[in-house]
């Protein structure tokens, strides 16, 4: 951190560049055109930073309680690698499609953007359906939320991620409904961009879930 009195060393934009006081030399991408857009970028990142700590807490609890199966099935017996790989591929692809949506948004191609977003929605929904099938399967094997501390910790962590996917789908649904017939504007661009950040973050968390919960559960 700099202790000199220079403007904007730490910040995203120099304070002087705001409120039309000084014109920026090069125009920013569309999602950062408005003050609201710049706020949304920072706000979404702050939210993601906070959420990562929330997930960290659930990961920590899961890791601490992963052996407390109380005679029920262990992770090793439960987890089906093929299923998890498929789920991972789905979510990873949906993350890719959402970044393609942003790419098209920056080119003001509303149609392509919506098509990619729709693909994202469908991939996310398939992931969720797969997860629902998986949980149902586990419950039939005797691994429930209430059966053991392992169960509570597992469903808390993975279910919390699933809830994030669900919320993301609802959010994306609202975005698509609102923009069904509209063009890309500086008003809507930050909203799409914020959603894509959120969606990537949900995928980022999944990377750790499949590595730490499923794969390590299979090994250790």
């Amino acid at each position: 951190m700099s202790l000199t009195a220079e403007p904007g060393r730490l910040g995203a934009a120099a304070p002087a560049a705001r409120a039309g006081a000084v014109e920026k030399t090069e125009a920013p991408p569309i999602e950062l055109a408005t003050q609201e857009g710049r706020n949304k970028l920072i706000g979404m990142w702050l939210f993601i930073a906070a959420e990562s700590v929330l997930f960290a807490s659930f990961f920590a609890v899961y890791l601490a309680l992963r052996h407390s199966t109380m005679g029920g099935p262990t992770g090793k017996e439960l987890f089906d690698l093929k299923l998890v790989f498929l789920a991972t591929a789905l979510l990873l692809s949906s993350s890719f499609t959402s970044v393609m949506a942003v790419l098209n948004m920056r080119r003001l191609q509303a149609g392509a953007m919506k098509a990619w977003l729709l693909a994202t929605w469908l991939l996310g929904a398939s992931f969720l359906a797969l997860e629902a099938y998986e949980f149902n399967h586990y419950v039939h094997m005797g691994h429930t939320f209430t059966s053991s501390a392992f169960g509570t910790a597992f469903y808390s962590l993975v279910g919390f991620h699933g809830a994030h996917v669900t919320f993301g789908l609802l959010w994306l649904f609202a975005l698509l409904v609102r923009n069904l017939r509209r063009e890309v504007t500086p008003y809507i661009a930050p909203k799409v961009y914020a959603f894509s950040l959120y969606w990537h973050f949900v995928d980022l968390v999944w990377v750790f879930i499949f590595s730490v919960v499923y794969l390590m559960g299979k090994v250790a």
Binding site: S2, E6, P7, R9, L10, G11, A21, I42, L46, A50
Partner: peptide
């Protein structure tokens, strides 16, 4: 989150961090 975003993004011209 709100206050961090405000202090990062909404300082008047010349209002540096220090």
């Amino acid at each position: 989150i709100n206050f961090v975003a405000t202090i990062v993004n909404h300082r008047a011209p010349g209002m540096t961090y220090m």
